[in-house]
Design a protein around this nucleic acid. Structure first.
Lengths: 341, 341
DNA sequence: CTGTTAGCGCCTTCAA
DNA sequence: TTGAAGGCGCTAACAG
């Protein structure tokens, strides 16, 4: 532990009390708007507090109130994370902050490489009382964090669908609707066979989406040529596409979870001499500026990451203030039509 | 202030002392690896501490040590922020975390809409002792935060070039080199006239880059058709490009600060029937996956955002631990050649 | 080597 | 209405 910083002592309520020749209790009451002081002395106290530039010391308050005024957020970050994930996440964080702007809460952020480190961080934070609540994102199919949260006694809000996995307050998004919108759009365009290229099913929402995709396709009378994870690298992606298009019946539409992958596919398809959308249609989840710079633009499902985050933030506050366990939809999916379909 | 949470009391050093019938001082010494306890009792103490699941309470430590173990980071976030900015920032944050992974420090993050709110946050955090240090990004041409930092007695590291603006430890990136690489690349391709489309010069680095661009161009014997801020909207951008290409002599190369803008320009130029790179070359700062999905790919200056952040993190630690005022280069620019030039 | 004492800055009974 | 005292959990100085 490094040596204690020797910065100038800040003014404390003791200083104010001494200055005014009052007891610290009176000062404390006045400063916190509590009864127990006359209006006159309260005024005096508030004024000199302002003059002396007093602000409550956070550590002291925290020690006494057992509240850190911190909301913990751990980002398990794959260095290869695609741009639009970053964009969504930063907007989400921005939204998460939103309900806290007029309050003292702030976000304690930490990035880690794997779940083990993430869990360690939660354990540490919880036992040290460093955060008042946790926000959990990217729910995995078999998520070791969910039992952990039950064990640690820290309020937590889960961002994502945890129905059947855990009994925790959650903020989720309508993946079923997103898939239905996608499929219905394709059906309306006369497509009869589609394929889905997802980002892996280790994440819960990957599975939810695949299931919803299958269900919606069946209802719309659309055949599924394949539901496969995306591959990295232009060459591998091109090969994957070729295989996909060789299947019988061949899909006339591709649904992506990642707009970056969709954009790459677009480029590959054109390289293969195929026309989009005439020969094959593309559409993707997670609308982003990326979808507008491709030629043609990418039809995408739009979701308001900021609103999503803000809803999560409000759920955290509700949990903290009234112990209200919320289960709300964070954002609504909307189809944005562009040239690719 | 909401009511105090009534979670089960965690075990404290008092509990351990009582359990072992020792004084709390001995326990404290043992737990902190300080001399003053025999090895035997230390062992005993450590073991029962572990058994009882003890962890130091952060608020108490913080109160006593005057350290919050928090590094403050405020993001002034324009809701219209482009994707690749988000990507760079999240990678930067990831890097910033890097030096803290094996330590107790965490990042206190807050997003705000304007400088006023940002300044208010710094003031609050500083006076409450909520952060041990601040990391300042996006230095503006006339930056009101710099005098503020001198006033507040909080250690701070500036990310960006502040030479001549403030005497603060800083981590900067080689914008001059980036511009020189760009210009030299163009010169080598035989270009004689270029234009620069930047993201506004309210930010310090915007100005630095423009100045460096002009200098490098002069040295390379390249004429500058224009140095103008980008405009938003496809139509406006197309008009801007048309004007630019109508100037005499017309630029045969365009340098962008934003790869999103460059990608949009690429699309617009092709819409105008121009070939890239034959008729006009494009290149951009801030390499990102975006640069690979356009057709042709965008030549770009690559900078390691993670390394940049990590360097900043190390500068913060140095400042905190040894009061060492560092002034280091955070990352190195490198030209990535692609089809657009 | 061990224990006692006194803070860190704030809040909260309980008496006066 | 005001003040004195105790505690939040931990650390540090000094006494034994």
């Amino acid at each position: 532990m490094p040596s204690r910083p020797h910065r100038p002592r800040r003014t404390t309520i003791v200083d104010i009390a001494r200055e005014l020749e009052l007891s610290i209790a009176s000062v404390s009451c006045a400063l916190n708007g509590k009864p127990g002081v006359s209006e006159a002395t309260r005024e005096r106290i508030l004024r000199t507090a302002r003059e002396m530039g007093w602000t409550a010391n956070h550590a002291a308050r925290s020690l006494q109130s057992r509240r850190s005024q911190m909301i913990g957020l751990v980002l398990r970050r794959d260095p290869a994370d695609a741009v639009q994930i970053s964009d969504f996440m930063l907007r989400f964080i921005d939204g998460l902050n939103q309900p806290f702007t007029s309050r003292e809460e702030a976000i304690a952020l930490r990035t880690v490489r794997d779940v083990e480190a993430e869990i360690r961080t939660y354990r540490d934070w919880a036992s040290q009382g460093r955060v008042d609540a946790l926000v959990i994102t990217d729910v995995m199919a078999e998520d070791p964090r969910l039992p952990l949260l039950a064990e640690l006694d820290v309020p937590a809000v889960v961002v994502g669908d945890v129905r059947g996995l855990a009994d925790l307050p959650s903020v989720w998004t309508d993946d079923e609707v997103a898939m239905r919108l996608s499929i219905e759009h394709l059906a309306a365009q006369g497509h009869r066979t589609a394929a889905r290229i997802h980002e892996g099913e280790h994440l819960r929402h990957g599975r939810v989406r695949s299931a919803a995709f299958a269900r919606a396709a069946q209802q719309a009378g659309i055949g599924i040529a394949a539901m496969i994870p995306s591959v990295v690298g232009a060459d591998a992606a091109a090969r994957q596409l070729q295989e996909l298009l060789a299947s019988d019946p061949a899909p006339t539409a591709l649904q992506f979870d990642s707009s970056l992958r969709a954009a790459e596919a677009l480029r590959a398809l054109r390289g293969m001499g195929l026309r989009v959308p005439e020969d094959i249609a593309l559409l993707t989840l997670d609308n982003s500026p990326l979808c507008e710079i491709t030629e043609p633009g990418l039809t995408a499902i739009d979701r308001d990451a900021f609103a999503y985050g803000a809803t999560a933030g409000r759920a955290v506050l509700a949990l903290l203030e009234t112990d209200a366990r919320e289960d709300v939809q964070g954002t609504t999916s909307r189809l944005v039509r562009r040239g690719s379909s």
